[in-house]
């Protein structure tokens, strides 16, 4: 349960840090780091406008999306403290839970009957589909390396490996960070600040959402960031006691947020029609990890 609380805490300031970093690099002061949460609260208090075309799907989809993220967060452990949900093969459950959320966010976009939202939905489905193998190869390799198949056991025993496991950790960080960007539709994949609907992915899907629903979706994005941040933090946590792991956790979350801020400030977006290939190329990095694991295990002899 402790990881759940920590992730919720981290989600409060994560996006704030990203925005602050982006402001500073572009020479502005920027809003306070709690501003995104204040925005969400403001959205919660607002009324809503629904499109006449929409049906019950549009009404329930944001709730399901949010619920799926909450469930997924419950799977994440903190070092040797298991998450609320923990069993052998729980990362499969994790990935498929996020799939449920995505399924509903896609069909709710299609529910509006808007050509732009359909476009965004199509891209979201395609990109997240290509990110799928990368995650599974990564987790499969880690399972092979550690001999365990649940998040908590994998992360707890990852620490005891040789030096090469830290190199694998760095590669895994890269993969997870990129998956975060795909899942949250951030910079190299999608530009959340773009001003043309034709070039958006995630933002265009939620054009018709408003009020409480929009608040749920926006806050869901914050939660997802913190969730992947927690996964990355777990790679380097091992089985230290709590008074060490909690600072590590927040340290890595902050570092990750700053890194995303810098990345978003200094990179341009990938070409939209080549995005799928870029994302699929992520699987090759995962395969590199897999090869590394084979090397560690001495399978090449």
């Amino acid at each position: 349960m402790i990881s759940f609380i920590l992730i919720i805490l981290a989600s409060l300031f994560f996006t704030g840090i990203i925005i602050r970093v982006k402001s500073i690099t572009s020479g502005r002061r920027g809003p306070g780091i709690l501003q995104p949460v204040k925005d969400v609260i403001r959205l919660f208090k607002k009324g809503a406008v629904y499109s006449k075309t929409t049906s019950f799907v549009f009404q329930v989809a944001p709730s399901i999306y949010f619920a799926s993220i909450l469930m997924a967060i419950m799977v994440i452990p903190l070092g040797e403290y298991r998450g609320f949900i923990s069993f052998e093969g729980d990362f499969v459950f994790f990935a498929y839970l996020l799939g449920v959320g995505k399924f509903f966010s896609i069909i709710s976009a299609l529910d509006t009957g808007s050509s732009f939202e359909g476009m965004g939905a199509s891209r979201e489905a395609l990109f997240s589909m290509f990110a799928e193998p990368a995650f599974f190869i990564l987790m499969g390799s880690l399972a092979l390396l550690t001999g365990h198949t649940s998040f908590q056991e994998i992360f707890a025993s990852l620490h005891f490996g040789s030096y090469i496991s830290y190199i694998l950790g760095v590669l895994a960080t890269f993969v997870l960070a990129m998956i975060t960007m795909v899942e949250n539709s951030r910079m190299p994949i999608d530009d959340p600040k773009t001003h043309l609907e034709l070039t958006m992915v995630h933002e265009v899907m939620i054009l018709d959402n408003s009020g409480f629903d929009l608040g749920l979706i926006v806050y869901g994005t914050n939660l997802k960031f913190a969730m992947y941040g927690a996964l990355i933090a777990n790679l380097f946590m091992g089985s230290f006691p709590l008074y060490i792991t909690i600072p590590i956790f927040f340290g890595i979350q902050v570092l990750f947020a700053i890194a995303i801020g810098l990345l978003e400030s200094f990179t341009a977006r990938f070409r939209m029609n080549h995005n799928a290939q870029y994302i699929l190329a992520l699987s090759s990095v995962s395969l590199l990890i897999f090869l590394g694991v084979l090397l560690v295990l001495g399978q090449f002899n």
């Binding site: 498929y96 799939g99 069909i107 299609l110 529910d111 489905a125 589909m129 990110a131 193998p133």
Partner: peptide
């Protein structure tokens, strides 16, 4: 493993498409 995961992803694309096209909008 990767193939099964990829197939899961494509099947999501397939069924969001079918459901969206037939029933929504």
């Amino acid at each position: 493993l990767a193939g099964l995961a990829l197939a899961g992803g494509i099947s999501m694309l397939t069924f969001t498409k079918s459901f969206g096209t037939i029933f929504l909008g």
